[in-house]
Amino acid sequence: MTDAIVIGPGPNGLAAGRQVFGRMMSMLGQSHGFPVPVGGAGTPTAALVSRLRRHGGGCAAGR
């Protein structure tokens, strides 16, 4: 996920594709807006945790 954010060259010199993709994502975000989930950035996480709990799982983040 962070590869889309990095616009500069990478440490291994093979970052030409990442650089083009990062610049393209930046341009699209500036011209069309960056998507934000309704309810804020924590909404997808809350939905995933809710689904996990419905299936008998648990989440102990931040402890």
Rank of each mutant, 00 (worst) to 15 (best):
M1H: 14
T2W: 09
T2C: 03
T2Q: 13
D3S: 12
D3K: 11
D3L: 09
D3F: 11
D3E: 15
A4N: 09
I5V: 13
V6R: 14
I7L: 08
I7Y: 01
G8D: 14
P9I: 07
G10R: 07
G10L: 06
P11W: 03
P11M: 03
L14Q: 15
L14P: 00
A15V: 01
A15F: 05
A15Q: 10
A16D: 15
A16F: 06
G17F: 07
Q19W: 01
V20H: 11
V20P: 00
V20I: 15
V20T: 12
F21M: 13
F21C: 07
R23L: 15
R23I: 07
M25Y: 06
M25I: 10
M25Q: 06
M25K: 07
M25V: 13
S26Y: 02
M27D: 15
L28F: 13
L28P: 01
G29Y: 01
G29N: 12
H32T: 07
G33T: 05
G33S: 05
F34C: 04
F34T: 14
P35D: 03
V36S: 13
P37L: 05
G40F: 02
G40I: 04
G40P: 01
A41C: 05
G42C: 02
T43S: 14
A47F: 02
L48I: 13
L48D: 08
V49R: 03
S50P: 00
R51H: 13
R51V: 02
R51E: 14
R51M: 08
L52C: 12
L52H: 07
H55S: 10
H55T: 07
G56I: 02
G57H: 06
G57P: 00
G57Y: 02
G57I: 01
G57Q: 05
G57D: 04
G58V: 11
A60S: 12
A61L: 12
G62E: 07
G62D: 06
R63N: 03
